[in-house]
Amino acid sequence: MAEDPVADWLSRVGSGDRAAFRALYAATSAKLFGVALRILGTRSEAEDAVQEVYTRVWLNARKFDPSKGAGMTWLIAIARYHAIDRLRARPPAMQSDDEVLDALPDDTPGVLDRIVAAGDAQRIADCFATLEPGRAAAVQGAYLQGLSYQALARRHDVPLNTMRTWLRRSLLKLKECMEG
């Protein structure tokens, strides 16, 4: 974790540095917009989400602790949580629309290729490879698209409790693999 410009900006933002805030926005907004758009699906809602996310970043930057993780990881976590909160706050009719779910691209195999291509973490790719394919896809679908247990159960056509058991076991296995 030698160089983390995002972490440097965050620590300056935490002390009220508006120039650092602008630099942070310039460097990271396309990625955070990508996160919000992927989960929320429409540009207008993703734009609203990004505005809220940077507002929270300004207000909470001093809570960022670089010893606990990378700056970008922290930012993306805020963006994902906010986008997921918005998704869950939608009226139930919009959340459970099978047609909408079916229309979402399931591009999971490509994701693992890109992680490896980015040289980011061969390990997580290897560990995902130890999971049954449907379960690896479910974990990634949750992470990247904000799919809830209900949505995943529907997509994979299994009862909700089955999905919960699958995923809990898969997550445990993933953790053991990555720490092993």
């Binding site: 996160v35 992927r38 993780g69 990378a70 994701v111 992680i115 980015a118 980011d120 990634q140």
Partner: peptide
């Protein structure tokens, strides 16, 4: 966090 590579920059 390695899964974050799956989010495009837009």
């Amino acid at each position: 966090s390695p899964l974050n590579a799956g989010f495009d920059e837009v």
